[in-house]
Design a protein around this nucleic acid. Structure first.
Lengths: 402, 402
DNA sequence: GACTATTCGTCATGGCAGTTTACAAATTAG
DNA sequence: CTAATTTGTAAACTGCCATGACGAATAGTC
């Protein structure tokens, strides 16, 4: 019961799953869930026309989903048009829930999201995790998880899985933290430390932030680049509505794109990496500040107050980001670039130089840059929603449960 | 009958195709074709175990495919093991064929590939196309296509579609050449110029070259970056066995990744783009040569002879490529980087500095760099094979024909 | 050489999934 | 009040794959 929740897209040709009638049924159950979930409330007939099946077929699918407690009947729709009004269906607000957890440098957070996408329980705790060993951190996090799970259960929800966002690189097994520089964790298998019994996924906070943007953002396209600098500068690449993870799961390492090939040496071995210009440490040094806990908040405050050094530091960081993003945009041709995480709060001072750089270096119309509306809570929401999406993607797996 | 041949991967959730029994049948027919095609020759029982269906189901699928002329029975297999020997099945060498065409700066080429992947007819013609208007070029190409099609028909093959590789950017409609600097074509819709009646796809030669590498390369992974400098420096990104095209179809524009942000101005509007260091013009100037027709051949020859200037020029180009690829590798985490097209022939002098640069700028083990074995004929083969793949991907579309 | 074990291809049967067709129920338009 | 329209459901139908059994063809064994 500890399988990876979110599988990558099915291979187009190679060794594919057998295509049997049961698989067909499962996919159609998922289509019904997605259709209802996307619209909030839909009649059987509307679902049928939306997913291309007949009303009769949808009826049997819906019956099953109602029996499983995943859909519920809201009663007759308000009849706006001629004809018998349909019976509104909605995703159930009880039953399976997604537990999202976040390990930050100075905090831990957990929340529970129901199938409708609503946050139903949450817990946040300040916690100085920089350089702390994994075991006590996970122990503390487990306490929060159990509390949130208990709160959720009081609302007729049961956890369908846990997804944990961490500030570091995660292997493709979805459990092992390969490298988290700000925590000083290396090759740590969180699967053995976290409570078992629930399906578990661990992923980079940038990835979860991007998924949140994809699923919850207003008008976010299916192809975009999500940049989020928490400590290092991470990015997530979303292609056709799915995350691009890379062979080892390390895709999106924007922070080590060369910006000035002869620039200052970087711990990664290179010279002039983006992180040397736009990383937290570089920016704080350029701004004449000591690195401290809520540096981003301080930077925003000082910039707001008109501190010239801080503004110059952010402007230069924006320029460096623009150079690196020019390369990324040339390579990927995304529909937009989204600034998320801590960068969202600093965007007023980063954006001008960033956009200038991007526009000047692009032949045609430049790729638009948007600012995330979710900001710093993206990763936590994305994590919780990833569990919910897994249920919507294959409702049959939770059929047995209440 | 002029639909895009190669559709992008099916959306994971959004607006998906209905999942009906006919669709299931079609997918299973495709699975059988792919299984047989991948192994060259396979018995019904082997196919069944490979794709996860029962022998009985495979039998009916195979019967149908044989009736359509897409598979043929080779007779009993050589019995190596105990038990009744199976009856070997193979993809038919007659029936549908893929027509690939290539528009180069100084040549035109067309070939026909049967379902087995064998080249069955071809035609090449030297042709100075630089700056020539589209109409006469396409007219000339159409002549070659008709000749190859006639040759193919004499071998019991009929064209199932045409795929054209062009040295430029192609819109996502798969017909319009947005920009081909070396031909000086802009926004040219080849769909109206090429012979109608056959399904048509137009794509960048770098993309087709990458697909050829993917389908025909020996041990090529499903995630890689294919770099091919013909005139500009293009790249194709292959993710999970599929091309990453980008929103507008412009993905892979490696040539305009900033290498030195304050470097020489580039026509694209930027400064210090890769093309300013590793492009054909830049390299020829650095090597002290005049740009001429077969510049690549000349460069290789001189380098072979030990010309110091040429070798230095290529070494510097390799360094610039290494810097740009460091960014790309950080962003995409591919399994390998493949040097294709003209770069393959120059690799002995490019690779050392390229790999050094890549290794020094990478923290862990550097991404391996391979050299394409297909070299300059990749795009043409990839184009023809893309048509063949389309037939294997959905055999039902050619059911009616002989 | 006969016998057994094994594997292959096929056939008949059955279960399952969505479609087709028909119909009652519920609403709007006239 | 009647006609038109739309919804949801039930019954019959078609299509697809699974199951189980069988003959056919091979290798190994006595």
């Amino acid at each position: 019961m500890t399988a990876p929740l979110h599988e990558t897209r099915t291979p187009g040709a190679g060794r594919a799953l057998p295509d049997t009638q049961q698989g067909m049924r499962r996919r159609n159950l998922a289509r019904v869930m997605h259709a209802v979930s996307a619209e909030g409330s839909l009649s059987r007939a509307a679902v049928a026309s939306r997913i291309g099946l007949t009303r009769a077929a949808v009826s049997t699918l819906v019956d099953e989903l109602i029996r499983w407690g995943l859909l519920e009947e809201l009663g007759p729709e308000r009849p706006g048009r001629v004809g018998r009004p349909g019976s509104a269906l909605a995703v159930s607000g009880r039953g399976p829930a997604g537990i999202g957890a976040e390990i930050g440098v100075d905090h831990l957070a957990v929340c529970a999201v129901d199938l409708r996408g609503a946050v139903r329980a949450r817990a946040v705790r300040h916690s100085a995790n920089r350089g702390r060993a994994p075991e006590p951190v996970i122990e503390e996090l487990t306490g929060l998880i159990r509390r949130v799970a208990a709160d959720a259960e009081r609302e007729d929800l049961w956890p369908a899985g846990i997804a944990v966002a961490v500030p570091g690189l995660v292997a493709r097994d979805g459990r092992t933290v390969v490298r988290a520089p700000n925590l000083d964790w290396h090759d740590t298998d969180l699967g053995v430390l976290l409570p078992s019994g629930w399906p578990l996924t661990v992923d980079n906070e940038a990835n979860f932030g991007a998924l949140a943007e994809l699923w919850l953002g207003d008008g976010t396209p299916r192809d975009f680049l999500h940049v989020s600098a928490e400590i290092g500068i991470g990015a997530a690449v979303v292609v056709d509505g799915g995350l691009l993870r890379g062979t080892r799961g390390f895709a999106g390492e924007l922070g080590h794109i060369p910006v000035r090939p002869d620039g200052p040496a970087c711990p990664c071995g290179g010279r002039g990496c983006l992180e040397q210009y736009a990383g937290e440490e570089a920016v704080s040094r350029a701004a004449g500040l000591e690195p401290r806990e809520d540096l981003v908040g301080l930077l925003a405050e000082r910039a707001e107050d008109g501190d010239a050094d801080v503004r110059a530091a952010l402007r230069d960081a924006g320029t460096a980001l623009g150079i690196a993003l020019t390369g990324a945009v040339n390579l990927l041709d995304p529909e937009t670039v989204v600034l998320g995480g801590a960068l969202a709060g600093l965007s007023p001072w980063l954006l001008p130089s960033l956009e200038t750089e991007l526009a000047e270096r692009t032949a045609g119309p430049a790729c638009p840059v948007a600012v995330s509306t979710l900001g710093p809570q993206g990763p936590l929401l994305g994590a919780a929603h990833s569990v919910v999406r897994a249920v919507l993607d294959d409702p049959a797996v939770v059929a047995g449960r209440s």
